[in-house]
Design a protein around this nucleic acid. Structure first.
Lengths: 143, 143
DNA sequence: TCACAGTTTAGAATTATTCTAAACTGTTGA
DNA sequence: TCAACAGTTTAGAATAATTCTAAACTGTGA
């Protein structure tokens, strides 16, 4: 019998169902990537890091597909893109309201729960503009 | 007589002095770029936009020099780099404590005074890390 | 099982940015 | 005033992340 979760469905079956719910055809590549991304805890990846990871796990997905998939997952609301570094894009599996610590030196992101932080005093945006989202990045350094 | 400010020094002389104060040799290129950047109000530029601007103003500075200069000015504390867009780097002539509205569609930044916004509840960073800076980006859209 | 729309992919292309090495220019000391 | 040199500029090549292209492939619904 295949790996199974408490629900009785295999992980793959769960992932497949999830992808379908989000309007994405469950291709082998998407299922495998989703398997890595959504299996456990919250994760922060770059296209490169995810590509390395899946390759080392013995699966074959092209880098172009990793890029495509990250964007499609983001579009679908399964991922959130985090902009903290001029050099590369991060994607976060936690799509809920939260913020980040960012350790630039090591390219590491750490979630800060949304309830923890509050931002007060944001002025009204200039006429014709509406607030889409407020991002807080707490840049940290090794002491 | 050359353009002069209330101080009686020409703008160029002022700029030159300023660059020297910050440990930068006042070359023609740096003086010209500084002239555009620091003459009036607070500004947000990209390497490309600043290069276009100086070129259109009839001065000749290579794009590589614009990049070098933006980084040197940033290093010296005359500019601050703002990371809001995965596609390009912005530099802000306002180096004081403040935050930004960002209109992604148009690549436009608008300052929010530091006193206006307050961020409460930032947790202690993980052991061994210290907070370097807290950046707030208010992403806005055309209504 | 077939047909086809949607997907993947290798490799080329693009874009922002950095690097390189040669030419140039402030500055300083005589 | 000027020679000399360290610091600077620059064209163009190089790099790195990302996107594009067009051809091959694959879920899916009938």
């Amino acid at each position: 019998m295949a790996k199974a979760s408490r629900s009785g469905k295999s992980l793959t079956a769960q992932t497949t169902a999830r992808l379908r719910q989000f309007g994405l055809r469950p291709t082998r590549q998407r299922v495998e990537l989703a398997g890595l991304l959504f299996d456990d805890c919250d994760r922060h990846v770059t296209a490169e890091s995810l590509h390395d990871e899946i390759t080392k796990a013995g699966m074959k997905v092209s880098l172009a597909t990793v890029y495509n998939t990250l964007h499609q997952f983001t579009e679908a609301g399964l991922l959130r893109q985090v902009i903290v570094d001029a050099a590369r894009s991060y994607f976060d599996t936690n799509t809920g309201d939260h913020q980040h610590f960012f350790l630039e030196k090591e390219g590491m992101l750490i979630d800060i729960p949304g309830e923890a932080i509050s931002v007060a005093g944001v002025p009204n945006p200039p006429p014709g503009l509406t607030v889409d989202r407020v991002d807080v990045v707490v840049r940290v350094k090794r002491a």
